[in-house]
């Protein structure tokens, strides 16, 4: 398994009270597998991805990702783990505006153990249809093109797992479908697993494996649903 979660709990302190936002009894994702996690806003989907990415330390439980038990890892170790194994795609793409398209893609591998591979970055940009836009800055791209750059950036370091947090949230349905198809194909070609979070039914329905996060997250289901 590339992801194994057991009795995972995330709580925030709100004054003296503990506010539980995530409570997942068990969840697994196999290598190369693709899953769509659906649920309304505020149901804890992004929190789950942040835990898997090592950006958030759970209050308790077990989280083994890419063979690494994240519980007990220091911040620097989690950074190195993320650099080596995880790629993140955001709804807002988070491209660096001062960098060209090619530089943005190369940034995806700068901190990974492997050296950034320029040829691979160009090949990936060709794969997502942006071979002619290497030297353009993000401001000169459409929203759909920016998300395709984010996909190339995620794949450039050959991650074991791509976490996509509402990657189609800023796109119209036609472009959303294209981006998801492209993302899934690219993940398959590169042999990496994909966990995609979305609240859009059209996006989720394209996946064979789906998770209803309202049912999975006991912290929300016990409280009687989403916000």
């Amino acid at each position: 398994m590339i992801v194994t979660l057991r009795d995972l709990v995330v709580e925030y302190r709100n004054g003296g009270e503990a506010l539980r936002v995530l409570d997942v009894p068990t969840w697994e994702l196999a290598e190369g597998e693709q899953v769509a996690i659906s649920g309304p806003s505020g149901s804890g989907k992004s929190t789950l991805l942040n835990v898997i990415a090592g950006l958030l330390v759970p209050t308790r439980g077990t989280a083994v990702v890419c063979g690494q038990d994240l519980i007990g890892l220091g911040e620097a170790e989690r950074d190195r783990f993320r650099a080596a194994h995880i790629a993140y795609i955001f709804q807002t793409f988070n491209l660096l505006q001062g960098y060209t398209v090619l530089e943005n893609v190369l940034l995806g591998a700068v901190f990974s153990p492997e050296r950034p591979d320029r040829a691979r970055a160009i090949a990936l940009l060709e794969r997502v249809g942006l071979r002619q836009r290497l030297t353009h800055t993000p401001a000169r791209l459409s929203i759909g093109e920016q998300q395709r750059v984010a996909i190339a950036r995620a794949l450039v370091k050959k991650p074991g797992l791509i976490l996509a947090d509402e990657p189609t949230g800023s796109l119209d349905p036609r472009h959303a479908g294209e981006v998801v198809r492209l993302l899934r194909e690219a993940c398959r070609e590169n042999g990496c697993a994909l966990a995609l979070v979305s609240h859009e039914a059209g996006v989720v329905s394209a996946f064979e494996k789906k998770v209803d996060f309202l049912a999975l997250n006991r912290a929300v289901s016990a409280a009687g649903g989403g916000p």
């Binding site: 620097a76 993320r82 080596a84 700068v110 901190f111």
Partner: peptide, 12 residues
């Protein structure tokens, strides 16, 4: 923050 998300450490 994005660089951190891409794997840059605090030291970096």
């Amino acid at each position: 923050a994005l660089l951190r998300c891409l794997g840059a450490t605090q030291r970096t």
